[in-house]
Design a protein around this nucleic acid. Sequence first.
DNA 1: GCTCTGATTGTTAGCGCTATCAGCTGGGGC
DNA 2: GCCCCAGCTGATAGCGCTAACAATCAGAGC
Lengths: 343, 343
Amino acid sequence: MTPSSDEGRARTRPAVLDDVAELAGVSAMTVSRALNAPDRVRPETRARVMAAVNKLGYRPNPAARQLVTGRSGVLGVVSFDTTLYGPASTLYAIEQAARQNDYVVNIASLGALNRRSIGEGVERLRAQSVDGIVIVAPHESAADGLRHLSPGLPVVAVDAGEDIPVPVVMVDQRGGAVRATRHLLSLGHETVWHLSGPPNWIDARGRVEGWRSVLEAEGRPVPEAAAGDWSAYSGYRLGKRLAGDPSVTAVFVANDQMTLGVLRALREAGRRVPEDVSVVGFDDVPEAAYFWPPLTTVRQNFGEVGRHAFRLLLDRIQGTEQEGPRIVEPELVVRESSGPAPH
Amino acid sequence: MTPSSDEGRARTRPAVLDDVAELAGVSAMTVSRALNAPDRVRPETRARVMAAVNKLGYRPNPAARQLVTGRSGVLGVVSFDTTLYGPASTLYAIEQAARQNDYVVNIASLGALNRRSIGEGVERLRAQSVDGIVIVAPHESAADGLRHLSPGLPVVAVDAGEDIPVPVVMVDQRGGAVRATRHLLSLGHETVWHLSGPPNWIDARGRVEGWRSVLEAEGRPVPEAAAGDWSAYSGYRLGKRLAGDPSVTAVFVANDQMTLGVLRALREAGRRVPEDVSVVGFDDVPEAAYFWPPLTTVRQNFGEVGRHAFRLLLDRIQGTEQEGPRIVEPELVVRESSGPAPH
DNA sequence: GCTCTGATTGTTAGCGCTATCAGCTGGGGC
DNA sequence: GCCCCAGCTGATAGCGCTAACAATCAGAGC
């Protein structure tokens, strides 16, 4: 259990290129080529080199390679609170895509979300000379931060709103909200209440806009939206207020966690879901199907977002500026928390 | 390979040490010292250097530095499915701790969990020459993988069971399960059923052991434990079976997601919680307090785990092998899903 | 037979930084 | 007045790798 006191690690210093070259009886350059451009070396030479590589357990030194090539093979991801389902899923997808393309991912989580912290995150990654950066920070401060980026490094953003000086991949929050709201109206509800996310989050804004646009287009009354902070607690607190108003029959909530709180508040007030009140969430977290009742919600495909972001970044790094898809459409998943309007 | 037509990026190549030295009128070495060992340079010289650094926007090249110092300032984290609350929280805590100590974190998420994938994750990070690695993979395959690590790189593991050749930080799963089980017995239940996690997960095993040990010590009947896969769905499926058995009055479930499924299954079977059946979960995810009813559960302090893991790794990197705390005690959080045994 | 070509391999020269040791200065001790 | 030492700064030599060009050789073409 207790580690050995004498670290006898000086027994064989790690092999370097010259060691391999010597063992294989070729020059260092040939070893380098055998590794990086195999078809520029005769097959039998390559075989000898590879044998030597394996025998010595040689591993290229990335620092040396980077020093001369200028590329590190590392991407940076700046993200806020990777504990949340959305950012965590996006990060995961980016990392998977990166791995498949022989990139590795450095993360910089932000403690707080403001312009300064974003700049710091970027600087921290830049100081490690990453080849490019994905910024996942769907907050208005990110937009500010992005406008003040020092140039010269490929950067793409996820869910970062409009008029931003970098390419953006985003989920069509507005469209998702439109679908949720239309769904509720189609069930016969006269109008739809909304509990939103924090107003300085881009995502939250898009959802409010989508919701409002449908109500206005349909000539329905537009109730005041109350803002939560994404947490179940805030949903509970705001839900209690709605639960006391008997005219409320349909609620669209900004995310699934808040919705959980809303469901509890409604239940405590004796209002049945969906018989008395229909509820629709946003995100489709894995647990949403096991809420009580199973939640009708809008699914965001975070995996797709992550993959697009990676691809976009790679294009910028390689200078192949093709336009890939940048908008990911969310999808309404109808379960049992929404139903026909009462009476 | 790369058909660079006209790489017009040479407008101002980034400043290097010599540029700063020239502008400040000193040697490169003095600039290096001013940056890395400020007290070995006269204050006014340092000031001149710093002025030049700022004027030129100089950033040290980490590859060059690493090439000569042998240290990269990067830590690696190998983790399985960083989408899950536990791993995500641990990762987050490690990253925070790393940042405060001027380290940056590289992640290698594993698609699958087996010996080979762990080895691959480690190799991927090693190929980037990280200074050390934290492995977060509470699965028996991790133990296997860890036994076959190539030596020479500081590694610590999180929740990796016993007889492992590397230092381990772990949550006392057994102790948490003991607390949960005792709590239920103290409420007058004759015995406690258990729905476990996948049996090849270290965490899941510890919880089973703790649960069983209490029942045996108290001479209670030990019902067979059924294993889920951590998901709400598996909890729902297994919960339905338990719900049909009227002798079941107390259930300890391996995590909160599964518990959500169990709660739904019980409700569908018309069994009230906690009046008919008491339920206790594990993890205390942020939503647990808003389950219906609010969930009694065992809180794991993932933040503490992450911090300890970082500290332990740093000690190994620096060779200061002090023994820090390696066991984190979870805590029972009593809410409303557990109550006195019926009749 | 001789030049020319393409395939293969080798040589040289750094990439940007820091470890190491050498050099220079000024003040204290005798 | 001279030596010694501490405090500061500089010159040199790589760290391990690859870009760029040079060298070599076999075979093709005439």
